[in-house]
């Protein structure tokens, strides 16, 4: 079924789901079993038609991600000590500094990677999670694509953390210049990890259930 067909189908008629056909797919290896099978015959993983606790976990991880995102912005990300100066910069402070020094491109990259994407992910996941229970503007297909984008982009949010990690490892020049990660680096990494887990916890099949006839 092409994407176009799906879209057309999604708008026009009820989808034919695996569950309605009495089938259940293994979440891990993708093998389709007859409904009622408890374990995958191929990989031995537990088979569930729908993950009942999915939404709970999404919300829990998301909340954790948001909570640790606050110190990630309040505390310094980098502690730079050079012969002349000692500096502690937060994420937003660093962006402003870069912007003031004229490095608009770098400022934009850091701002997008550290602020826009994480916050966008929070919003997207919250939107998806809400959309499972309620009627929202985007249809199921669009929401599924959004989900895939969130999953894909999640790992790239770590770019900030990698920069800090590499700088800290490289710049250890005794009293001349030292860069150390701040508390924010840890919380930011945790925040990214929690949002990734949150996105992973979302059972995308739930997105489609709203369009389905009640079982």
């Amino acid at each position: 079924m092409s994407v176009h067909d799906m879209e057309v189908a999604g708008t026009r008629a009820r989808l034919t789901t695996a569950r309605s056909q009495g089938l259940v797919a293994c979440h891990r290896c993708g093998r389709v079993h007859a409904a009622g099978t408890g374990r995958c015959t191929r990989c031995g993983g537990a088979i569930e038609s729908r993950d009942a606790a999915s939404l709970q976990r999404v919300w829990a991880w998301l909340l954790a991600g948001i909570v640790v995102y606050i110190p990630a912005n309040v505390y310094p990300m980098l502690r730079t000590a050079t012969l002349l100066d000692r500096d502690e910069s937060t994420i937003v402070g660093g962006v402003i500094d870069l912007f003031q020094h004229g490095s608009y491109a770098v400022a934009a990259i850091v701002f997008i990677a550290s602020v826009v994407i994480p916050i966008g992910k929070f919003l997207a996941i919250a939107y998806l999670a809400l959309g499972i229970r309620r009627t929202v503007v985007m249809n199921a297909h669009q929401r599924h694509r959004l989900f895939e984008v969130v999953e894909f982009i999640g790992r790239w949010s770590m770019i900030d953390v990698f920069v800090v990690a590499i700088l800290s490892a490289l710049v250890q020049l005794g009293s001349v210049a030292i860069i150390n990660p701040g508390i924010a680096a840890v919380s930011f990494a945790l925040s990214v990890a929690f949002t990734m887990l949150s996105a992973q916890s979302l059972d995308p099949r739930l997105i489609w259930d709203a369009d389905e006839e009640p079982v």
């Binding site: 569950r19 829990a60 909340l63 954790a64």
Partner: peptide
């Protein structure tokens, strides 16, 4: 083929039992 009847397991009663341990994380 006749669709197989899904095996439905009912969750344990009470809201406390249905809470995921993941809530510990936040």
């Amino acid at each position: 083929p006749t669709p197989a009847e899904p095996h439905v397991r009912r969750g344990a009663g009470g809201i406390l039992f249905r809470l995921s341990f993941v809530w510990l994380v936040p």
